[in-house]
């Protein structure tokens, strides 16, 4: 009995090529947003500022990892007939945990993200990974897959948020960087070179998130041509 346990354990902590691929694949070749087209809604709504985007990214990584691990651990006992509902209940529970925690320890972010915390439930990345991966693999691999996908999603979120916050408000993480009043670090009103610059309010609005992601997809596919025409 003891021997078996040791063998199991040895196999479980292995981190080889296959495991590394689980982590890195979703960052590029199989990116949740730009390739799999999953989880777009929240990527649009919360990327008006880096602060919110960071909170959202961390929340999604958390939910992704734990939902994948739990589902994978239960995969043999989940009845096929109610599979979807069980998966959704697991996700919804984790999301509620996130909501209650944010409400207690990060109240400002909680207020600003409001409805969109709840929408992590229907963030197709989480659900998609449960169906596609966790239901067929062991908890350890599943947690890596969840981590990889969560991070792949988070990175895009942060990139989009950076462009929208910087070009839309002249701020990064709420710190005023470039604008036309004295409280900005670079005051364009007094600068000889940057007098023409003005941040563009359109970037903060919803549609511009679409444009930023479209350009990201363009850049990503131009750089990695094997992704052209996948979807």
């Amino acid at each position: 009995m003891a021997d078996v346990a040791v063998v199991e354990k040895k196999e479980a902590i292995k981190f080889g090529k296959k495991e590394r691929k689980l982590l890195t694949d979703p960052l590029d070749d199989n990116n949740p947003i730009t390739v799999q087209v999953l989880g777009i809604c929240s990527a649009l709504a919360v990327t008006t500022g880096l602060k919110n985007a960071t909170v959202m990214a961390v929340a999604v990584v958390f939910v992704c990892v734990f939902a994948n691990t739990i589902t994978s651990a239960l995969r043999k006992s989940i009845p096929k007939q109610v599979r979807m509902i069980v998966q959704l209940v697991i996700i919804a529970t984790l999301v509620t945990v996130v909501e209650l925690t944010l409400k207690a320890y990060a109240f400002e972010s909680y207020k600003q993200l409001s409805v969109f915390i709840g929408l992590i439930i229907t963030n197709c990345i989480v659900m998609g990974r449960l169906e596609a991966f966790a239901m067929a693999n062991r908890p350890y691999e599943s947690s890596l897959d969840g981590l990889g996908n969560g991070i792949g999603y988070g990175i895009i979120l942060l990139i989009v948020a950076f462009f929208r916050e910087f070009f839309g408000k002249g701020e990064i993480f709420g710190a005023k960087i470039i604008g036309a009043t004295p409280d900005y670090m670079i005051n364009t009103a007094e600068s000889a070179w940057l007098g023409w610059y003005q941040y563009n309010n359109l970037m903060v609005l919803f549609p511009s998130a679409m444009f930023v992601i479209a350009v990201l997809i363009w850049a990503h596919r131009a750089w990695n041509p094997k992704l052209v025409d996948v979807s």
């Binding site: 730009t34 679409m210 992601i213 363009w218």
Partner: peptide, 12 residues
């Protein structure tokens, strides 16, 4: 442009 085909255009 090939890289914009499909998904990219849909976003735009």
């Amino acid at each position: 442009p090939p890289a914009m085909r499909g998904l990219g255009m849909a976003f735009l």
